[in-house]
Each structure stands twice: as structure tokens, then as C-alpha cells.
Amino acid sequence: MSALDVGAALPRRKIEILPALTPLIVALVAAPFVGSASTFLTLTAAGIAMGMMIFTMASGLTLVFGMMDVLNFGHGAFIALGAYVATLVLLPLAGWSASDSVALNLAAFALAILAAAVVCGALGWLFERLIVKPVYGQHLRQILATIGGAIIAEQLIYALWGPDQIPLALPAAFRGSFVFGDTAIEKYRVLATVVGLAVFAGETLILNRTKIGLLIRAGVENREMVEALGYRIDRLFVGVFMAGSALAGLGGAMMALYRGQAHATIGAEFLVLCFIVIIIGGLGSVGGSFVASILVALIANYAGFLAPKLALVSNIVAMVVVLLWRPRGLYPVTGR
């Protein structure tokens, strides 16, 4: 028997279930108030899809914040940039998007979100080297520098694309809804959910099944010790920052397609939500961000339907309640 197998029958690490069930609990509590089953299903499906898009944007931020201890207020710039890069791909491919071929529709969509991720990842490298690296370990300066970087990026977007919103048409295959009885679920929401789940699965796989993932998780907890074991944490930082920026771009592209338009303010609009999500989830926890994204989106949807005025503050209320229950978030990462 290999020495690595010696613990096969021994106790495995326990995962707390209750925090993961919070979206389900919220849904069960909201269901009787919503009343109609079809409305409830539509609201829930929309909430899950929105949660997946928020998660895609926020998961990079939680790693950057958790591991690098960097308050990156420039994250929103990559969300906006991803939206604009998607327009650069989709507008010339309008023929593919309007085609009756599902394959061409999918290809146009895939190219758009991949381009958004790749461009944002590459610019993330530049942002980290020029703006973030000089202010490691200095939170106040990080806030100032990254906000400054975000303002420059936003103004560059205005200079390159102009101040107007750019309409972004969904590929034909993703327009309309799937109808089940009285329940209508938009096709794009299903696609957004699939992409979000794929991102989550990919991140979970990398973080738990690869040595790079182990290093990232260890780095979130104790960067110094990772270095003392012989790993070059600065290179890992750059990689994580690039991945975080790429995910922001991917999420921005998805969100722009959902809204049918790209605008430079989309980044600032979702940045606050991303911070709320990573705080609720537990800084540095990808799984926590996943649960928190769905939780926040579901609460916003149910609140928007039941008490529209409450929807304006539902995210903050959710954060306060969760932090009163678990002060370090749903799935706190030790050491943060």
C-alpha cells in the first residue's frame, strides 16, 4: 500500500452544510409569500442565473482579496472592459449571432466571452505590475491607487468607445424563453447558469485537485509560510490577479449580454455587489462566494417582487444578518 493511501479509511474533513443551505432556506421561506408557483419558479431561476453571473465576477475578487490582501477597487474596470470586448467580437460577428445555426450562435457567444476573459487577464497583468505591486501591504494606498486605476480605465473606455451605451444583441438561439406550463424561463438565464456552474466547477477542481490550487489556498492563509516552503509567491500573485481579472471580464461580458448593452458604469455598479458577496461568503473562499452570490441574488429577486422598496437595501440587510450569525462569513478561510 502506498503511504499516501494510509488514511483512506480515516476521518475526512467535514464540510459545514448549513451555510450552503441558506439559499434554499430563503427560497422556502419566500415561497408562501410569493404565492404563485410559476412566479416563484421564474423568480428563483432568474435569481440563480443572476447569482451565477455575480459569482463569476466576484470569485476573482475574493481570491485577490483573500490571498494577496489587496483591496482591488479596480476590479470593476475589468467587468466593464469585458463587456466592451464582447461588443468588439459580437458586432463583427452579427451574421453568426443572427444565424439560424445554433452552432454559429454558440461559437459567437463563446468567442465573445473567451476574448473578454483573455483580454482582461492580460490587462490584469499590466494593472498588477503598474498599479498594485507598488502598494502591496498598504491598504489605504491600495484603495487610492486602484480607484485611480479604475477611473483611468473608465475614461479610456469612454475615449475608445464613446460615452453612449453600445447595444449588444443576444445570439438568436438564446433569445426567448423555455415555457413549462405557466412558467417561463429565459434561455439566456439557463446559459448563464451553465457558464457560472462551469466556472465554479473549474475553480473548485483547480483549488482542490491541483498543486497550484493548494498553493493558492495556502497563500490565502499564510503567504509567508508558502514562501518559506520554496514557492515564489509573487508569481502566484500575478497569476491569481490575472485569473481574477479574466473572471471579472467574463462576468462583465455575460452581464452585458444579459442586459443587451455595454456601458462603462457597469463595473462600478457591480463592484459594490461583488464586495458584499465576498464578505458574506468569507474572504478568500470561492465556495463561500458561490453560495453568497446565489443567496444575494435570490433575496434581491424575492424582495423586488414582494416589497420593491426593500429590494434597494436587501443586499446590505443580507450582509448584516449573515455577519451577525457568522462574523467571518459563511465559509471563513482560516487566517483571514
Partner: peptide, 10 residues
């Protein structure tokens, strides 16, 4: 400085 969130094996 053990990594508390990781297993002994990790």
C-alpha cells in the same frame, strides 16, 4: 504555521 484549512496530507 500549518495551513489550517488544508488537510494534513495537503
Amino acid at each position: 504555521a500549518v495551513f489550517s484549512d488544508l488537510t494534513v496530507k495537503e
